[in-house]
Amino acid sequence: MTSFFLSPAFFDQAVLGITPILLAALAGTLSERVGLFNIALEGQMLVGAFAAVAGSHFTGSLAGGVLMAVVASTLFSGLLAFGSAILRGNDIVIGISLNLLAAGLTSFLLRSLLGVSGTFSDSAMAGLTRLHIPGLADLPVIGRALGEQNPLVYLSWLLVAAIAIFLAYTPWGLRVRGIGEQADAAVTLGANAVRYRIAVTLAGGALCGLAGLQLSLGSLTLFSENMTAGRGWIAVAAVMLGRARPLPVAAACVLFGIADALGLKLQGEGLPNQITDSAPYVVTLIALVVAGLRQKIDGRKLSV
């Protein structure tokens, strides 16, 4: 077993597993910081994943796929921004219906636009290509995991740093923190909470678009119905565990990514995939329980 855990493939798999969850969790982190509870991450990712494949297929270029993923998912998050930030509807109910809408819409479009049900793949379709970063890539064992990923993987980690710096050191970050903590105080000082909420929700949509892109064009080039498979919810859990602070949230994502890789690895060892597929969810649930017992989760009740 030991050899397996230390294998390059394991670390590579872990990094691949982390990326989409991390991007979505960053979106959730930003939302949480302006006082919106974004549980539509799952749906936004799914829209992004579909749009990436559709865009890449119809334009025949990777750029088309990237563009479509980001645009579609951002537009979709506009529904959340409109309903939740502007009309002040219940963000949880809107989130639930958006997740279901995304699932329905993508599988409808899969049938009507791409003419298949279940899974669409096109071998001619361009996916994200792996880079080769000299030095990093030559490291033993973790070389492939760190030095030979696609650009989106590196972007996701840059975004963690960028968002952490944005929140801590810029005027706009301070305003975001203020709005999330005590919106009416921010408003009396002239901060436009609604505008910040819209901006953050749309930015979150773009991040989820990238997360979806990584899922559908990151290592494979295919879209299948409900391919997000709860990753958006795992991202929501990561935001809770990290209490919406970028670095702890990223750490939680790393944990979940490793669980994902572990599941795949155990499957390789002969365990049935129905059981190993459950690994990330079980690990997430255990993490939530442990954190909850140690009182690390916000005391806030999450009810509609």
Partner: peptide, 30 residues
Amino acid sequence: GEIYARVPLLVSTWLMSYPAKGLCGWLVHA
């Protein structure tokens, strides 16, 4: 889980579906 460990039902109920489906799926696979 919510009562004793403050794990929000909103998240836990959703996530708990996967292992349940996985377990039943495995039973009828093997």
